[in-house]
Every structure is written in structure tokens, then in C-alpha cells.
Amino acid sequence: MKPRSFDYVRVKSLAEAVIALARHGTEAKIIAGGQSLVPLLNMRMASPAILVDINALAELRGISLEGGSLRIGALVRQAEAEGSVEIAKHAPLIAKALPYIGHFAIRNRGTIGGSIALADPAAELPACLLALGGEVEIEGAKGARTVKADDFFKDLYETALGPGDVLIAIRIPVPSKDMRFGFSELARRHGDFAMAGLAACRDGKSARLAFFGVGSTPLRAKKAEAALAKGSLEEAVAVLDHDLDPPDDIHSSGKVKLHLAKTLLRRIAPELAA
């Protein structure tokens, strides 16, 4: 299929982007990497009146260390992030997750910000952001704001981003030395969205477990986190029954997904041990 007609504007500045979005409201869609949006356009499942192309915005690029955080610009391509020394050093969980995203041709184009903004419940990066306790920088008609990952993912493809908002960057707290990271997912084929996945980190005091592919958003498993912080893996696995209630999808039942989530937790646990 071919897309329905739409108009297109390539904005030159963030301010211009915000104005364009404000003018067109819900009729406008931002295009960054386009790797999720263009399939929807091609299938006529999305029909915006106008695409606001933000690819020319230099202020959305770059990876930098700011204070205690690693700031990754929204327009950083996933392939660029894969090669980033800063990310490998300060956000090793993201470095572990990146190769699982689609295929290299997708990562050459797909952006960090786009993946977070779309918030596909089976995607890797939203779960990483959640596990890392990161933040999202947003620019909107009413100015700039920062939203914690825990508050960002609302429901299926629903986030704290409003129609006029632009996701500017994500911020990841630079981890303490004793922080351990674990990432794994189970996908039928290399590059597919996961049937179940887990992004996790743990230091001496606490653990954060963000599961993906098992609900309508990436999900923290807080009971399991508490059990794991106490040092009981078996209990953590057992209480996942209460943390997660995965719905059935065409590829597997919720029961299978829950079983896979438990298996992932068992498998990742050694990586999380100090």
C-alpha cells in the first residue's frame, strides 16, 4: 500500500518545531528516524495531515556527560549509539540492549528518542530507561520539562508526551561502581520484537527490573525487585506471578510469557550478583 497524502515540513529549529506542532495539533506527527512511523503510513494505519521532520535539529544530537547524568540526544541514531564510547562506559545496559533492536539497516536510521517516544511495549530502550531510572527531556508549547521514566510510560503507546511536545533527550544517571546490569530477551528470530525481555540493574541496596513484551508498557516488577534486593532469587521468581499478568498475543499465551519472564530473571540473576 501507499501512504495517504500528507504535507511535510522540515523544521530548522526547535522553536519552529514547537510552533508547527502547536499549529496543527493532533493532525501533526513528528518524524525522526521514521522506522516505526513510515510502516504505519504505508499501511494507511496512520494518516497525519502533516509530518514535522526534526532531523535537521542539531540541538537534538550528541551524547554528553552533564553533571551526574549521561545525556543522549533524541536524534542520536541507534547505530551511532552502538558505537558510542560514552554509552558503553556510562550506560552499559543500553549498550547491551542496542544490538537487539531490529537490524542494522533499521538502527542506521532509527533514533534513541523515537524509540522512547513510540514506547512500543516490546521494545528494548523504553525498558532500559525504566530500569536505569532515567529521565526524559521534553520541549513543548509551555516550555521545557523533565519527566522521570517511572512516570513517562502511561499505557499502550501512550506516554507523558502531549500532541505539541518534542522529546529532546534522555538522561541516564551515571551508575555507581557497584552497579551490575543484565539484559536479555527472547525473540523468535534475530531482530524481532521480544516475546519477553528483561532490562535489569542492581547495586548493593536495591534492584530495578524492567520487563518488556509482557504488558501494555515496559513494567517494573517491584515485588521481585524487593525480593531480589533481599538476596532471594527464588522468591523474586515466585512473586513475578503478582508483578506481571501478561496478556495473550498472536504469538503466545500470557502463561508462556510469564514463564519466559521467570526464565529470564533466573538467567540474568548471575550477571546482577556483585
Binding site: M1, Y8, R10, I31, G34, Q35, V38, P39, N42, M43, L51, D53, N55, A79, H103, F104, A105, I106, N108, R109
Partner: peptide, 28 residues
């Protein structure tokens, strides 16, 4: 036309991409 099969693979600015997931207008 939904980015899965790779038959449309081309290079844009030196990087391999899916030709069906990039708009021509973006290639100015």
C-alpha cells in the same frame, strides 16, 4: 513496504537503510 524484507535496501549518505522507510522528500 513495512521494513521487514530488506529488498528495498539502498544507501543514504553512506549508510544502508530501508528504501521503503525513508521518504524521498527527506532526501533533499
Amino acid at each position: 513496504e513495512h521494513g521487514v524484507c530488506g529488498a528495498c535496501t539502498v544507501r543514504v549518505d553512506g549508510a544502508v537503510v530501508r528504501g521503503c522507510l525513508v521518504l524521498a522528500v527527506q532526501c533533499d
